[in-house]
């Protein structure tokens, strides 16, 4: 009798965890936007090509088995290569695709800052040039202007 109770308790303890283990870890909609159809180069959620349907059914099968999204992606990359991922991996050659846009943004900001500094410096130099006009020359110009005014 005691044995039966122990077995029953063990079964009760295991059933919820087994049920949890088989719980889908991600939604189909979510993963389909993160994968590519390998034969048509469009996103999986937008494709109905036979290869896309095959991947969709594989993903659904593994999801039901309780695989994580990463496990599914890893398995697909093994068979189709990294091109099956909508976003390139952040390692190896794929890293370049992440670095280049970031480098362009940083470089662009750098160019804007540099140009602003150059323009500002040039303007300041012009202001200084204006401020340092020879006073004697300034007087002569004033004199000439006055003389012109008297002629009128």
């Amino acid at each position: 009798m005691r044995q039966l109770i122990v077995i029953a308790l063990l079964v009760c303890a295991l059933v919820p965890s087994a049920a949890f283990a088989a719980q889908p870890q991600f939604s189909m909609n979510e993963i389909e936007t993160e994968l590519m159809c390998p034969t048509c180069q469009s996103r999986l959620d937008l494709s109905h090509a036979p290869a896309a349907e095959q991947i969709r059914s594989f993903v659904a099968r593994k999801r039901e088995e309780g695989w994580t999204k990463q496990q599914v992606k890893d398995a697909l990359v093994q068979d189709f290569g990294p091109a099956v991922l909508a976003a390139p991996p952040a390692s190896g050659v794929g890293l370049v695709a992440w670095i280049v846009p970031a480098a362009l943004v940083v470089g662009g900001v750098g160019v804007v800052v540099a140009l602003t500094l150059v323009w500002r410096r040039r303007r300041r130099a012009e202001d200084v040039a204006v401020a340092t006009v020879d006073p004697a020359l300034d007087d002569r110009v004033d004199e000439a202007l006055r003389a012109l005014g008297d002629d009128d």
Partner: peptide, 18 residues
Amino acid sequence: KRLVVIVVAVAIIALGIV
């Protein structure tokens, strides 16, 4: 100015290669 042109050119070439 020359440095800016070089930086932009390198960025465009890198983007083209990728």
